[in-house]
Write a protein that binds this DNA or RNA. Structure first.
Lengths: 331, 331
DNA sequence: GAGCTCTGTTAGAGCGCTCTACTGATGAGA
DNA sequence: TCTCATCAGTAGAGCGCTCTAACAGAGCTC
């Protein structure tokens, strides 16, 4: 009983275990006759190799560990998709962990991910400490998406969040807006950068920055708008730059709830250009990040390191561009 | 060089390898003195157990394999979330594969998932053949979500798709609609059931069923509506029952593009009650499926089997309920 | 003080594979 | 005819761990 092993196949095919191993790995140095015999025996027994045993013996791994900050945010689902594509094409499997945007929980999740000794690790928008990242990077290649790092041992795939926010503000200013608030990403990854870009652009235009503390979720976006409405008397902002699309969606709901029309009363810009933004009924003006492309780039960077083709860090810095849709209008 | 092993820790702590193993597994039969010594040594070396080696030696696994039909559909992201919660709480990790809604690709993906000898497998909305499922179920527990099966060896978590569609149709009929078309889920999982429910309800009301072949994606939903508009002259349906929310979103876009207002000109009902439907600006009337709850139920069913607590199949059949929002209105 | 249980510890086999080093044919080249 | 490659195949160690059985030593009982 139990599943058949290589031993069973070998016995049935009348060959050694080593020969079965060679056949399973598609080695060319096996005669056609034996190969056929082995394959037939395997077929009859319903044998398929045990990936973990293989990995242990060969001291290699075909697993990539992926830690996602939040699976509900379509941004990450789309990045994972690109990563998955590259990985699968090169014979790697993904083991996925979600950290729920808490450094402590992400730390635990990362630990459990590493206990599988993956060939490489991709951290998508995570907030684990830089120290934890450094430690992890000593064990196997690490690539960060939507999170920057100065570590020379990790690769990164990011857009220029500062420039992205600036473009958003410039767009609003060009429409005549002056009171432009930012719903920020709090302690989320890349949030500081986007905040800085917003700040800089505002000052450049001689405007007063107003930052409302928020988070990368729809719930937080709605809450931030409610706070903003409660706090500001009649000096209500005429435009909002949200932390990301997911946050903007919440903001949109809260604005509607307060009887404010978008874009007639308030203009709104998101960030990421997720599938959400493209929904015709949201039609969110947003800053584009090429999500699956970023996933593919991350996968490729990781696999290059895994194969030992490169040791110097790679820093993909994508240039953000504004996608103007229906949530922004002249003042 | 290379990562430290149990051997290294044992040597450093001046104990046997077996003792280190006991400490790592939290055995009570270790003296405090030794336990402290081992933990310190492990700490100093930065040791953490090798999950795969452990799994191989103990002939047990702490991974659950998950195959998701489509990560872009928020329905699955939400189910995975519930599953992840249960799994993590009980010390299991998820290894995730996406099949891209093609039986052949899903078959391959399933094979690679099984090669890790997971403790159990969850198939979310997949379209692999029943035979493949049966084979897989011989190796380890299998739970199906959003897909039914008569196999006594697999557990299932579903809603009553037939009843769900009926409720949707009843709602539309009660609003005075007579020409109600169904954008179906094609060969997607549970699609036949939903189609049958639609059909039955229509006949019960003495109405003519009109089924437009579609799929569980937004792109397909949009295409189906365009076809529908092209084919029907002036006998245009006044209401649509979409395969699921994701499909409905596409339909919504295509309707808008054709200058048709929802719900003034056409009413629309989705299915799943994903986060998409709840978006204030979509405000999609839809049939509710409790997604994370379904994920949790699936996780629990799977783990019960994994622990050998149960051998008889469990069939969770959730009762669908209609969530009326803004996309449906009287004729 | 011999036998007993109980507690803490260890040796060593073995999980299912890979990989190195080796063997025994076969055929080419001198 | 005798090397000497070359090719197809195998034996056996070992990957990092768990688990069984066995074993000291302490503390009992009689």
């Amino acid at each position: 009983m139990g599943r058949p092993t290589m031993e069973d196949v070998a016995r049935r095919a009348g060959v050694s275990r080593a020969l079965v191993s060679l056949v399973m790995r598609g080695s060319p140095k096996v005669s056609e006759r034996r190969r056929a015999a082995v394959l037939r025996a395997a077929q009859e027994l319903g044998y398929s190799p045990h990936a973990m045993a293989r990995s242990l013996a060969s001291r290699t791994s075909t697993v990539l560990g992926v830690m996602v900050s939040d699976l509900h945010n379509p941004f990450f689902a789309e990045v994972v998709d690109g990563l998955d594509e590259v990985a699968r094409n090169q014979g790697f499997d993904l083991i996925i962990s979600t950290g729920s945007r808490s450094p402590a929980r992400e730390r635990r999740a990362l630990g459990s991910l590493l206990s599988f000794r993956p060939a490489g690790v991709a951290l998508l928008g995570t907030v684990v400490s830089a120290a934890d990242i450094a430690t992890a990077a000593q064990q196997q290649p690490v690539v960060l998406v939507a999170r920057s790092s100065r570590l020379s041992t990790v690769d990164t795939v990011n857009d220029d969040g500062e420039a992205g926010s600036e473009v958003a503000v410039d767009h609003l200013v060009s429409l005549g807006h002056k009171r432009i608030a930012h719903l920020d990403g709090g302690s989320g990854s890349q949030a500081a950068l986007r905040r800085r870009g917003y700040d800089r652009a505002m000052r450049r235009h001689g405007l007063d920055p107003v930052v409302v503390r928020s988070e990368y979720t729809d719930v937080a976006g709605a809450r931030a708008v409610r706070e903003l409405l409660a706090d500001s008397e009649d000096d209500l902002p005429t435009a909002l730059v949200a932390a990301n699309d997911y946050n903007a969606v919440g903001a949109l709901a809260a604005l509607a709830e307060a009887g404010l029309r978008v874009p007639e009363d308030v203009s709104l810009v998101g960030y990421d250009n997720t599938s959400l933004a493209g929904l015709r009924h949201l039609s969110l003006t947003t800053v584009d990040q090429p999500r699956s492309e970023m996933g593919r780039l991350a996968g490729e960077a990781l696999l290059q390191r895994v194969r030992g083709e490169r040791a110097e860090p790679v820093r993909h810095l994508l240039h953000p561009s504004l996608v103007v849709r229906g949530t922004t209008a002249p003042r």
